[in-house]
Simulated scan of single mutants.
Amino acid sequence: MARHNRIPIKSARDIEKMRDAGRVASDVLQELAKAVEPGRTTGEIDKLAATLIAKHESKSAFLGYRGFPGQICISVNEEVVHGIGGSRRIQPGDILKIDVGVVKSGFIGDNATTVPAGDILPETKRLLAATEQSLYEAIAWARPGKRLFDLCGAVEDYVKPLGFTIVRDFVGHGVGRNLHEEPQVPNYRPNGKSPILMPGMTLAIEPMVNAGRPGVRILDDGWTVITEDRQPSAHFEHTVLVTDGEPEILTWRPRETFV
């Protein structure tokens, strides 16, 4: 594995392993999304994740990471990211952010989606649709020769005119043998110099978008991030490979339809 400006460049062998990890992460995420329904607890979804990850002969990339106690991150409504599965029972109209990271053959696949529990408010559908589209706006910049700050800025450029705000305290990241690698991938255009993207870079691009103000805080559990104004937040993520041409989504799944 080579490096460019501290950013790991994956070899052909590394990339094949990352494709495998990405497929597993995507399969697990899609199965968990199907299991979201009113009446179930977030802890039940977390237990299902453990079963599904083991079925794929993989491990959770999150369990035990800096002491995190869950198999996955599962965050409800005003919870932005890093929620812990437990006794909270899913209610009709809730939105659940499910973030799945798996380790397969020494490499990590990382992806997330936001799942409605039954019917949700029209303004919440707009939030989800805008956040998912902003992810694809950013992915379109994951090409050789492009600058990272343009990829990052594409998220805020898309959601801001729609009246939504970006969470600035938490960002995407490089991913590979480690869950968090260089570079940081914020969802806004950072100041200063920006790396040029090169084939072999793998990025976890993950818009976190709020319906209200951008401020967030961490709950007493030391993990769960919530919006300060308790307005809903949405989260979508893919692991993306920069190739010689089109970006390759290593955690590919069908897009959602929020109508």
Rank of each mutant, 00 (worst) to 15 (best):
R6T: 11
P8Q: 12
K10F: 14
R13S: 14
D14F: 01
D14K: 04
I15Q: 10
I15T: 13
E16L: 15
M18C: 05
M18I: 10
M18F: 05
R19M: 09
S26Y: 11
E31M: 13
V36S: 00
V36M: 05
R40A: 09
T41M: 02
G43N: 01
D46Y: 03
T51M: 14
T51L: 15
L52H: 07
L52D: 10
I53S: 05
H56V: 03
H56W: 06
K59A: 14
K59Q: 15
S60M: 05
R66F: 12
R66L: 14
R66T: 05
P69F: 11
G70S: 09
G70A: 10
G70P: 02
S75P: 01
V76I: 13
N77K: 11
N77A: 07
E79S: 05
H82S: 03
H82N: 01
G83D: 02
P92N: 09
P92S: 12
I95L: 02
I98L: 08
V100C: 03
V102P: 06
K104M: 11
G109T: 09
N111S: 10
N111M: 08
T113V: 08
T114N: 01
V115W: 00
V115M: 00
P116M: 01
G118K: 12
I120P: 03
I120W: 03
L127N: 09
L127K: 12
A130I: 09
E132L: 02
S134D: 00
S134K: 06
L135P: 03
A138G: 07
I139G: 04
A140K: 13
A140P: 00
A140E: 07
K146A: 15
L148N: 03
F149K: 15
F149S: 15
L151M: 14
G153F: 13
V155M: 04
V155I: 14
Y158T: 02
I166K: 04
I166N: 06
G172T: 08
G172S: 08
V175T: 15
V175F: 12
N178W: 14
P183W: 06
Q184K: 13
P186A: 02
N187T: 05
Y188A: 05
N191S: 14
N191R: 15
K193S: 10
S194H: 00
S194I: 07
P195C: 04
L197R: 07
P199G: 10
T202L: 08
E206A: 15
M208W: 01
V209D: 04
R213V: 12
P214G: 02
P214S: 05
P214W: 06
V216C: 01
R217I: 06
R217W: 11
W223R: 08
V225T: 01
V225P: 00
I226T: 07
D229P: 04
S233W: 08
A234E: 03
A234V: 07
F236C: 02
E237L: 09
T239Y: 13
T239E: 10
V240W: 00
V240G: 04
L241A: 03
V242F: 11
V242M: 12
V242P: 06
T243A: 13
E246V: 15
E248I: 04
I249C: 01
L250K: 07
W252P: 01
W252C: 06
R253A: 08
R253G: 00
E256N: 12
T257R: 15
F258L: 11
V259M: 12
